[in-house]
């Protein structure tokens, strides 16, 4: 009876939050603890995937989907790709010295304490959330990226305040991505001169001519 009373009081939103938060934190710590680089990549995938779940729970569905699509589905696949290109026996697990580990642990613990203190320091942040929003929609976000703000201003700000859209940052990021694409392709291009002549010709002949 008591158990069923307790179950009835459970807020499933909070339970889901705990599940995702626990997974995200546990796998983030696992990334640090693990030595094998491929396992680290796997844990990182799970950690970032769980974070996407947290975004969904916070009502940021578009951000959550983008996290899954760009971060987990794109960036991390790229990272795993890099891991596999360089994962030769001596580099799969490079050990760190114990001194470094202890030092990093102390610094990390200090940082964590500071951050936690900041997290608990503001009364308004500890107030329980409302948990319901009428008609969640990605439209205001899309409009904001186009430079038009259609969302309601946050409470407490003056209604006459002109809020900026994000058209210019959006364009800058687009150009930035293009530059990065070109730059990355240039940096990682195959260096023909490093391959001995004989092997290259044999390779070309075997694959049926130059491509």
């Amino acid at each position: 009876m008591i158990a069923s009373m307790m179950l009835a009081a459970i807020n499933w939103h909070s339970v889901l939050f705990l599940v995702f938060a626990g997974l995200a934190c546990a796998f983030a710590v696992a990334v640090v603890v693990a030595d094998n680089i491929v396992r680290m990549a796997f844990y990182l995938v799970l950690s970032l995937g769980s974070t996407a779940g947290l975004f969904f729970l916070a009502g940021a569905e578009f951000i959550g989907s983008m996290q899954l699509m760009i971060y987990v589905g794109g960036t991390l696949v790229l990272l795993v790709f890099g891991v596999m290109l360089t994962a030769q026996a001596p580099f799969i697990s490079i050990k760190t010295s114990t001194n470094d580990r202890v030092l990093a642990g102390v610094v990390g613990a200090a940082l964590l304490v500071v951050l936690l203190q900041a997290a608990f320091s503001v009364e308004a942040w500890r107030r329980p959330g409302v948990g319901e929003v009428a008609n969640p929609s990605a439209t205001p976000l899309g409009m904001a990226l186009l430079g038009v703000r259609v969302d309601d201003p946050p409470a407490g700000t003056s209604p006459s305040l002109v809020r900026s859209g994000y058209l210019l940052p959006f364009e800058i990021v687009s150009v930035h991505l293009l530059v990065v694409l070109v730059g990355a392709a240039y940096l990682a291009r195959a260096k023909r001169r490093r391959i001995p002549r004989g092997i290259e010709t044999a390779d070309v002949a075997a694959s049926g001519g130059p491509r």
Binding site: A9, N11, S14, W125, G129
Partner: peptide, 8 residues
């Protein structure tokens, strides 16, 4: 388990 999630 029973309180709503807050920002903290």
């Amino acid at each position: 388990l029973s309180d709503p999630v807050s920002v903290t």
